[in-house]
């Protein structure tokens, strides 16, 4: 079963396996959301607001709908 980044829990890490096809795919890739990268959900804004992911020492904020495009494989910390 494939999981996406919006399903992560706070402080949970995962490895990106793919970015789903969407007009936003190129934007996500350009920001560095690439297969093989490790991400960690560091903050969630209230009421299903944006999610902030740590990746390679930087923090990037995405909306929940965009995070759902990032297909992941969760890993144990």
């Amino acid at each position: 079963m494939s999981q996406s980044a919006d399903q992560l829990k706070l402080s949970e890490s995962a490895v990106i396996i793919d970015i789903a096809d969407s007009p936003l795919k190129i934007n996500l890739l350009e920001m560095g959301f690439l297969p093989g990268k490790r991400i960690m959900l560091s903050h969630i804004a209230p009421a299903s607001g944006p999610m902030a992911f740590r990746m390679d020492g930087s923090t990037l904020a995405l909306r929940k709908s965009e995070a759902s495009l990032i297909k992941i494989e969760s890993i144990q910390n």
């Binding site: 007009p23 936003l24 930087s58 990037l60 904020a61 995405l62 909306r63 965009e66």
Partner: peptide
């Protein structure tokens, strides 16, 4: 157009 938010938190 689709609205999106992608912003770096420096």
């Amino acid at each position: 157009e689709k609205s999106f938010l992608m912003v770096e938190l420096p």
